[in-house]
Each structure stands twice: as structure tokens, then as C-alpha cells.
Design a protein around this nucleic acid. Structure first.
Length: 574
RNA sequence: GCCGCCAUAGUUCAAUGGAUAGAACGGCCGCCUCCUAAGCGGCAGAUACAGGUUCGAUUCCUGUUGGUGGUACCA
């Protein structure tokens, strides 16, 4: 298939509209809103008729006369004010399923390949990863996986926070801890390490002075302090990598390009902005005023690129990063998977990047924002005592809870096996609960609903997969080349859902919305469950049995691939 | 103050300007001598408010209310 189903139908309806005298009118094809409206509906006739002062019903009739869907649709009809409802032919859906089984990409067409930078996770290395880093990490990872599957070249960038005054304090404290012989122990818990360092900073003026000196030394390239800094970063990154490992996130060391990597370019960025007349001095700082960001009184919003004291800010670092991503990485598209609260910053940064020529008009800069994670009480997700929840501990709890549930369900299963299932189910549940929601809104974190094993959850999808795996464990001897024949409505609906995989992936890529893939997989799993109830597989015979087994095969492959793209593991049994 | 985002069943979430607003959880009622009931089927239940644009508005525009975030030297 060179195009998705929706693209195919859109092209055909467009051609028919043109033949009916409406050249260039959009077909507006969409999945049908209700079962009785068929599988797809074309809504473009009403608009086209309106624009040409025609009768929409009459135009629909003319369009239908020119609409060639031979071998594709079994029924095409006009309904309501001028909707064209299309029902796909079982034989056509069967052939699509056969094609998808015949190649490794499951029939997903490849778009023109782009080089896409995905900036995600980006924790602050001064502290341990906490729940605030979860969304960026897994949303970014899912997007990276989907884009790669579609054939794009993805360059992951972990823009970690590895620079700033706090690192003076931390390295100063690291020396003390080493002298006391307890560095390894103290660093075991980074959060605690930070707290203790901060306490020393607040209580001991001599330590505070030393910490400030270390900042200067660090920036000045002092070898000893730099070595300490690097040691601290290495330990902190190991903590991150342990979390990535547990989460099944593919970020590696080579993807790490922290804020410090851009230090040398910061003066050049400011100088360049000055030379271009974009940055001006204001109250001692270097500031850019953008006309695009004015209030009612015409006062432009300030975008500070250099502080009074000569220091730089994340605004400058991000500009330098854009230069790197354009100049060195040659990106066609850059996705910033960052908290929605930084929206204004990104809008200003993108606008300025274009004005300063750091990003061409052709390069797409997109802020993939997301809301905050809330607790059951609707307030930001915290521990009972009000502290931040460490990511490592959250994931551990997910596994523990899943293990208890798995054990309850399968008391006789070997413990190793139950742990394996608990890992996939627990981590999968946490990730899916997040990925399945529109990333723009804040979302309520609830153990009960994400581990419910019911409804739109990861375990439901994993269970659908294990049911198919169970079928194949008992299948024995069947013809893997047998033709697929769709007799029952449940079979046809399943084949239709299977044929829509490409549409879902394309939507995820276009809108940078992983929840479209989740919604798709939930729909697919639901169609499979209905098929499984209505159509005996192993108990049917001959060609019918082979055909149903092939549908099962494609469903399993699609679920497996789809869950892989979300970074969620599948299980053969659970 | 100014700028942005959000408001959908009791709850948690969906819905490229399309037809009768979809799910899930919870509630009520059914389905296992039959491939895993972690499943399937059914019932009740919602677009904050007021205008406007449109053949058609949850969606776009204006205002109101409520929530939330950002807003000159953190990121």
C-alpha cells in the first residue's frame, strides 16, 4: 500500500468532485461516525455545493456517478444533506490484510524521510529523576519510536541540566564527602545528597563561600573542580540510566548533550544578536524585544539573553542549541518535549531563531508540551509528606502492586514468571496511563485505574496479545499462505481496524500525539475481543480456520508492533 | 495588571467544523459443560454560562464565570 486507506479514498472522492465540476474541492474523508454510516464518510460535498451555490444532494448524485471505487467499496450511498457513506468490500479488506502479512512493515507506507531531532527527558542532573520527568521521557520516547518506524532519521537529544551555580555547591560538598570517606554512600541517594549540600550551604558561611568559588573555578576550567564535576555528572547519569533501563526507554549516553555543551557558543550568540540589532542593552542586561509579543499597550515582552552580571540563561542556551541542531545536525524538524508551562519561552525562542536566521522557514520547530501530573486530590502529585516522588520509587511500587495482582490471579505460577509479568504489566500500566491521554491536559495519576486490568489500560492490550499467543500455542498444522476470507461482520470489523494502523501512526507523527496510537490499539484489541467471542478459531475447520488464524497472526503482529512503539512489552502468557 | 492554557456523564478520559457527543471506572441486569471471564453483551447518565459566524459548532470568534500557568535577570 503506497498510501493509507483514508488517503486512497480522499484521492478518489477528490477526483470525482473534480469530474463533477468542483475542481480543487476538498473531499473531507473521515472515519464514519456511526456504524450505519459505513466505514468512511466523505463530507466535502456540502461545502463544495455551498461555495458554488449548488444543491448539495444533487451534487452528491453527480459525484457518485463519477466516483470509482470498484474493487474497494461494496456500498456507497448518499445520506442526510449530502454525506457520502462508504462501506469497504470484504474482499478488499482481506487483500489488504494479506498484503500486510506479506511484509515486515505491516503495510505501513513510508513518507518522505526527514531528519527529526527529538529533545526529551532532559532531567536536571543536580537531583534525582522524579515524577516530573516521567511525561517528557515516555512521550518523547514513544514519538521517537513512531518516527523511526515511519522511516525518519531520529536524533534523540537529552538536553540534561548539567550547568549552573548549584554544581559549585555540589562539587564542594562532594570533596567534603570524599574526605570523610563517605562519598559513595552519600551519592547513593542524590536527592539526599543535594539536601545535605544545601543544608551545609545555608548553615556554614565558609562552605557557602567555597561553593561560590567552585562555580568560578568550574567556569574558568579549573582541572580539579572540572574532574569533580564530571564525576558527579557520571554518577547522576548512572541514576538516570537505571531509570531508563527500568522504563525501557532507549536513551543512551551518546544522546546526552547537556546545557554545558553550548557554553562556548553563548558569547557568540549574544554578539550575533547584537550585531543583527536584535539584542539591546536594557537595565544592564542584554535583551531582545519582539514585536510579536506585545500586550495591549504595545509593550513588547522582554527576552533576556544575558544577565546584568554577564551570566547567561537557558534562553541563550536554547538558541545555541537551535544553531547546533540546524548547523551540525541538519534537522528538518525539531521536537521539544517539554512541560507546557514553558510555552511562552518556546514561542519567543522559535520566533527569535527565525529572525536571527538560526532556523530556516523550512525547518519545523515544535514545542510538544504536556500538562502536569496531579494526585487524587487534584493537586500536583507528591508523597504523603509533600515531597517529590522519585521516579525509581514510583516504578518500583508499580511492579510491587502488579506483582500482588498477578499473584492473586495466578497463585500457582512460578515466582520468576510472576515477576516477569509484573514488570511488563506494572511498567506498561504506568506508561500507558500517561501516553493514552491527550498530552496537553494535566492528568490525574491513579494506581487504581491504571492497574485496574480493565478498560483502556495496558494490561487489556497485553491480555489481548496473550489470548492470541494462546491460540497459536495450540494451533499446530495450518496453512500460513491461505487466503483470508471475511464472512462474519466481526471478521470484517477486525480487518478494517487492522487496515487503519498506518493512519494512526501518521496521525501520531503529524500531531505529535501518542494517544492516537493508544486509542487505535484499544479499538483494535476491542475488535479482536469481539471477533474472538463471535468466531471460533481453532474449532473451525479447513480454509475458514486458516483464514481466521491469519487474521489472528496479523492482529498479534500489529498489537506487538504498536505496543513496541509505545515502549510497552508484550507477554506470551499472563 | 497583562498574556496563555483549560472547563464534556458521579469519576477518569475521547471526539481533522459534520449526522443521534464516544469509551472506561463506579451503579444496575445478563453471559463460562465452549480457543485464558484480566473477557463479552445490555440499561441509566454529560458539552460551565450568554451571544455570534456557519448549510452544520464540544470544536472557530466575542463576552462572563471558575480553575490553572507564565510574565526583566531559575529552568
Amino acid at each position: 500500500m503506497q498510501q493509507t486507506l483514508i488517503e486512497l479514498l480522499d484521492a478518489r472522492v477528490c477526483a470525482a468532485l473534480a469530474a463533477a465540476g468542483c475542481e480543487g474541492a476538498p473531499a473531507v474523508v473521515a472515519p464514519a461516525g456511526r456504524p450505519e454510516f459505513g466505514d468512511y464518510q466523505a463530507n466535502g460535498v456540502m461545502g463544495a455545493a455551498k461555495a458554488r451555490k449548488m444543491n448539495p444532494r444533487q451534487l452528491a448524485i453527480t459525484v457518485l456517478e463519477h466516483l470509482d471505487l470498484a474493487g474497494i467499496a461494496s456500498k456507497v450511498e448518499i445520506a442526510g444533506p449530502g454525506f457520502i457513506n462508504i462501506t469497504l468490500a470484504p474482499a478488499f479488506l482481506a487483500s489488504l490484510a494479506g498484503d500486510a502479512l506479506a511484509e515486515s512493515r505491516l503495510g505501513v507506507p513510508q513518507p518522505v524521510a526527514q531528519r527529526v531531532v527529538v529533545d526529551y527527558s532532559s532531567p536536571n542532573l543536580a537531583k534525582e529523576m522524579h515524577v516530573g520527568h516521567l511525561r517528557s521521557t515516555i512521550i518523547g520516547d514513544a514519538l521517537a519510536r513512531v518516527l523511526r518506524f515511519l522511516g525518519h532519521e531520529v536524533v534523540a537529544q537529552n538536553h540534561v541540566g548539567d550547568w549552573g551555580t548549584q554544581f559549585g555547591m555540589l562539587t564542594a560538598y562532594l570533596i567534603e564527602a570524599e574526605q570523610g570517606g563517605e562519598a559513595a554512600l552519600a551519592l547513593n541517594d542524590l536527592e539526599d545528597f543535594y539536601r545535605r549540600a544545601k543544608l551545609r550551604f545555608d548553615e556554614d558561611p565558609a562552605f557557602a563561600t567555597r561553593a561560590r568559588e567552585y562555580v568560578v573555578k568550574l567556569q574558568g576550567g579549573d582541572a580539579q573542580v572540572n574532574a569533580l564535576w564530571r564525576k558527579f555528572l557520571d554518577i547522576s547519569l548512572h541514576h538516570c540510566e537505571a531509570v531508563y533501563e527500568k522504563l525501557g526507554v532507549g536513551l543512551r549516553r551518546e544522546d546526552v548533550r547537556g546545557e554545558s555543551a553550548y557554553n562556548d557558543d553563548l558569547p557568540a550568540v549574544v554578539a550575533d544578536l547584537q550585531a543583527k540589532g536584535l539584542a539591546v542593552e536594557s537595565e544592564g542586561a542584554q535583551v531582545v524585544f519582539l514585536d510579536e509579543f506585545k500586550n495591549k499597550e504595545g509593550q513588547p515582552q522582554a527576552y533576556i539573553v544575558q544577565k546584568q552580571d554577564g551570566g547567561y540563561l537557558y534562553s541563550t542556551t536554547d538558541l545555541a542549541a537551535v544553531r547546533y541542531r540546524t548547523g551540525k545536525l541538519k534537522a528538518d524538524r525539531v521536537l521539544y518535549v517539554v512541560d507546557a508551562r514553558q510555552s511562552l519561552h518556546f514561542q519567543q525562542m522559535f520566533t527569535l531563531s527565525r529572525k536571527a536566521g538560526y532556523a530556516s522557514a523550512a525547518m519545523s520547530l515544535e514545542h510538544v508540551g504536556f500538562g502536569v501530573m496531579l494526585g487524587d486530590d487534584g493537586k500536583p502529585f507528591k508523597t504523603r509528606s509533600g515531597g517529590t516522588v522519585k521516579l525509581a520509587e514510583l516504578l518500583e511500587e508499580a511492579e510491587l502492586r502488579a506483582f500482588a495482582l498477578v499473584s492473586e490471579k495466578n497463585p500457582d505460577m512460578a515466582e520468576v514468571e510472576r515477576h516477569k509479568i509484573a514488570r511488563a504489566v506494572g511498567i506498561g500500566a504506568v506508561k500507558y496511563a500517561d501516553l493514552s491521554k491527550n498530552r496537553n491536559s494535566d492528568y490525574v495519576f491513579s494506581w487504581d485505574s491504571m492497574l485496574a486490568f480493565e478498560g483502556n489500560t495496558a494490561p487489556y492490550l497485553q491480555y489481548a496479545y496473550t489470548r492470541i499467543a494462546g491460540v497459536f500455542r495450540r494451533a499446530e498444522g495450518w496453512n500460513e499462505q491461505a487466503p483470508i476470507v471475511l464472512m462474519e461482520e466481526a471478521e470484517r470489523q477486525l480487518a478494517l481496524a487492522l487496515a487503519r494502523f498506518a493512519e494512526a501512526l501518521q496521525a501520531v507523527s503529524r500531531e505529535t500525539m501518542p494517544h492516537f496510537l493508544c486509542a487505535y490499539l484499544y479499538e483494535l484489541a476491542g475488535q479482536f475481543m469481539r471477533f474472538y467471542e463471535a468466531c471460533p478459531v481453532l474449532k473451525s475447520e479447513g480454509a475458514l480456520r486458516d483464514s481466521r488464524l491469519r487474521l489472528c497472526r496479523l492482529t498479534a503482529d500489529t498489537l506487538h508492533t504498536g505496543l513496541d512503539l509505545l515502549g510497552i512489552d508484550v507477554l506470551e502468557a499472563m
